[in-house]
Nucleic acid binder design. Sequence first.
DNA 1: CACCGGATCCGGTAAACACCTGATTCGTCG
DNA 2: CGACGAATCAGGTGTTTACCGGATCCGGTG
Lengths: 210, 210
Amino acid sequence: MPTRILLADDHLIVRQGLRALLEGEGFEILAEVGDGREAAKVARQRCPDVAVMDFAMPALNGLDASREILRACPRAKVILLTMHTEDHYVLEALRAGAKGYVVKTQAAADLVRAIHEVQRGMMYLSPGISQTIVQAFLTKSDVPVDPLTPREREVLQLVAEGKTTKEVAGLLGISFKTAESHRMRVMRKLDIHETASLVRYAVRRGLIQP
Amino acid sequence: MPTRILLADDHLIVRQGLRALLEGEGFEILAEVGDGREAAKVARQRCPDVAVMDFAMPALNGLDASREILRACPRAKVILLTMHTEDHYVLEALRAGAKGYVVKTQAAADLVRAIHEVQRGMMYLSPGISQTIVQAFLTKSDVPVDPLTPREREVLQLVAEGKTTKEVAGLLGISFKTAESHRMRVMRKLDIHETASLVRYAVRRGLIQP
DNA sequence: CACCGGATCCGGTAAACACCTGATTCGTCG
DNA sequence: CGACGAATCAGGTGTTTACCGGATCCGGTG
């Protein structure tokens, strides 16, 4: 039985390329989605063996989407596929429970190998990832993380993408007032008082692309 | 004789995916490079029929690389492959002599079609590209790179920095209503409807730091 | 000169935002 | 079990935005 893969990347052209590569390696693409929210939805319906997640995606970023997926399907193996090699991202990914971290500048063979490794229960990190920071994670040291809860981050991303509070509420299936509460708490935690600074924060954090 | 293609993208994994897709369509990949400088070098040695260029690349960006390529091989057709749909980028690309502009969120079929079209001497732009600005380019080639007036840019920057309209007015020594007018005109010109998108535009433009 | 575009100003309105308070449910952790 | 944080919802208030319209002044350019 071939490995069933969920493929998430907001660039259709890239996704189709990845699909061609992975299918050529004998994997089965369970589904192909363009944003994190879709990815989580698909995972809830049909648990994939492996989820290959781009980091920067609209609606819900790859990291928080990964958390969702892992909550829905704890047996799924998540591989982050990204252009960021920064320690911060790697660490967050590992902490979220990702089993693989592959940078896009690596060859496709690297991704294929990552999929095989995580399927065997191993972890796989692309060459070039700082080993020191990984050690730090494994010895569970405390590195400053961002103070926001996943839900708050979710709301922040949507707001930074230009959604109104009402739209955010609609997208998340919560009431307008709840969405507003999250937004307010984000602002208070970050000591930010306008949307503009919120957007810049989200960009700095890599939550959204400028 | 198959179309000989030069493929430039800094993400190896993406490049390999594109190669798989394009070879499946019967094209010949003349070379595959990871930055703009390499692309220009290869083009000088072996003129490609078509150059598929990513926009964001190290060493030399796709746009300036395209200029180099066209200087070396005026008969080559350049297609920009990018994630930016901003008028500014499109316009710059067209002005540089690019014959195609394909956004990565489109299907691979779009790129294939673009290659065929430019080979036939036609221009090809992905759906979603603002037709008005393209028309403007085609009619009179001296279109402002930046549609904003200096004053409007000034207001945009302050707004993106998190200032309220009232504060902007105070800082510029103009009335609240005037500041609002500028802000409105910026939004209308850029077809933007919320502060969040305004901020992202300013960041992309390098007007402010994220 | 007459026209145009940039910059300035002003009126109004509905929606969204920024900020506050207080409350309930739920899972986790000591 | 009880405390706690996360997530949910709701009431209210004043400010700001987004968008509409029209207007004046001024410096170039045809």
